[in-house]
Design a protein around this nucleic acid. Structure first.
Lengths: 114, 114
DNA sequence: CATATATAGTATACATTTGATACTTGTATA
DNA sequence: TATACAAGTATCAAATGTATACTATATATG
């Protein structure tokens, strides 16, 4: 393998791993989909996703905000409320998510047939 | 949200998470790409991927074999050798990997510009 | 007045997973 | 006899994940 190929290869892997890092894991997509679905408040989101704990939800929301996929808005009432919403940019993940959905469905069938 | 919608939603999430499970994590794609690149032997693959440990490589190879993405062939010589190869089915992941690569590249740029 | 409630998380302790390093098994070679 | 090779395992420490209880603040309730 030539050095220039190796570098392209590494860049490719890096880009894929970055996507994995931003969207991967157990919770990020369910959280995004829940917010997109209309759940705006911390506790609403929490309730809509079975088994997620506060600590994990808190961390994941921060991660998604840092990656510009959701916004966090403080509403100054009592008790203080927070609104989470998906960003316009967030819709770009559809280009990744749809192929994953299709492949995953086919794969489940394939493995079952094994 | 209607029950039928909820069910579709859950199926969607499940399919995506299955894809994540099969292809996700730090190592699976680098391993597939390394084998595809011509590395067939355990130690060759190991050397081609910086920082991976034997234990992790061993586990990931099993996972990939179980998911029909690679094959493992025992060659009865001394010392016994094992050949790993990507399957024909493995090429189907290109449909997932390419969008991830594209999105990841764009995302890295987007975050840097923040 | 004392107590309860709601919100958006933290803190703490415990469980699971991952990683680094050494070791295994059987034969061939120096 | 000692060493090396191949393809992993075994073992222990470190990092990460999970469950549960708790925080602060102001209002509502009895």
């Amino acid at each position: 393998m030539k050095e220039s190929d190796k570098q392209r290869f590494n860049e490719k892997v890096k880009a894929i791993q970055d996507t994995m890092f931003v969207l991967g894991g157990k919770w990020k997509l369910p959280i995004i989909l829940s917010i997109h679905d209309g759940n705006k408040r911390f506790n609403e989101i929490s309730k809509s996703i079975p088994k997620i704990t506060n600590r994990v939800l808190s961390r994941e929301l921060k991660h998604l905000e840092e990656n510009l996929l959701i916004t966090r808005t403080v509403i100054d009432e009592y008790p203080v409320r927070i609104d989470y919403e998906v960003t316009k940019y967030c819709f770009s993940i559809e280009k990744v998510v749809k192929p994953m959905e299709d492949w995953g469905k086919n794969h489940i069938a394939k493995i079952k047939a094994k």
